[in-house]
């Protein structure tokens, strides 16, 4: 049986999400951002929130997120996405508001906004892409960079005596009474992608229901910044990143 016959007689089991705009993404080949964008589109479509969702785009690699997912967006200043999300959600509480941030945005310049938004228990969802490096600006050290990891600004590896310890921010947020759901996922295999999608769905529903702040950390790769092939970067992430950032629910949804 040839391909045309299978397509004609069979059923389509996977296709590009309807909410993704028809343009090529600017991300490097193999970037985890693409997978997470896809999951966000699918979840919004499945929950039927196309007209009710407002995303807050960050500064960082995902700065053009509003070009790729066909919902309403607001672009925030660097690190200020949770503050903007607070305003948007309070002005129209019927909307599902989520932020999409990287580690430079959420864990470095925006630490104060992140912690205070979570502490106030704003009814928003935060998607946190943690790849341990500043991807957009050329692979400099981020707060989440692992000890001994080589980056453009730590060419001999991150030194704890000089640069401090890697910042593990999600457990900090899990301690706060304002958060309702804090989880850490990854998107490196088909199984982990499906798990991550379920987590995003749960978080979006919780934010919409007004249960508090939901945080999804996605441990990701930056193959360009790490100077590896995409497949090798996934292996490196499994060996090194998962030790420092173990996957699983840090605060399950009650």
């Amino acid at each position: 049986m040839n391909q045309d016959e299978i397509i004609k007689q069979g059923t389509k089991v996977y296709s590009r999400p309807r909410l993704m705009d028809d343009r090529n993404m600017h991300y490097c080949p193999g970037c985890s951002h693409g997978v997470v964008h896809k999951l966000v589109s699918e979840v919004i479509e499945e929950l039927g929130l196309e007209d009710k969702t407002i995303g807050i785009a960050p500064v960082g690699c995902a700065v053009f997120a509003y070009h790729y997912i066909d919902v309403d967006w607001v672009e925030a200043a660097h690190g200020r996405a949770p503050a903007v999300a607070t305003a948007v959600k309070r002005l129209d509480p019927s909307r599902m508001v989520f932020t999409y941030q990287g580690d430079g945005d959420l864990a470095a310049i925006g630490t104060a906004e992140t912690i205070h938004a979570a502490n106030r228990g704003e009814n928003i969802a935060m998607i946190f892409i943690n790849n341990g490096i500043y991807g957009m600006t050329g692979g400099q050290m981020a707060p989440t960079t692992l000890e001994g990891m080589k980056t453009a600004t730590t060419p001999y590896g991150r030194r704890v005596d000089l640069n401090g310890y890697p910042l593990n921010i999600t457990p900090l947020l899990a301690q706060l009474p304002g958060t309702c759901y804090v989880t850490r996922q990854s998107v490196h295999t088909a199984a982990s992608v499906r798990k991550c999608k379920a987590a995003i769905k749960k978080a979006f529903q919780a934010a919409l229901d007004g249960r508090g702040t939901a945080v999804i950390e996605v441990v990701s790769t930056c193959n360009s910044g790490w100077k590896m092939s995409p497949a090798k970067a996934n292996e490196w992430m499994e060996e090194n990143m998962f030790k420092a950032y173990p996957l699983g629910d840090l605060k399950p949804l009650e």
Binding site: I6, T11, S32
Partner: peptide, 15 residues
Amino acid sequence: CATVCPDACIEVYRL
């Protein structure tokens, strides 16, 4: 393949 594709460029059919 389609699940892990970052650019959502794969369609899958099953029979």
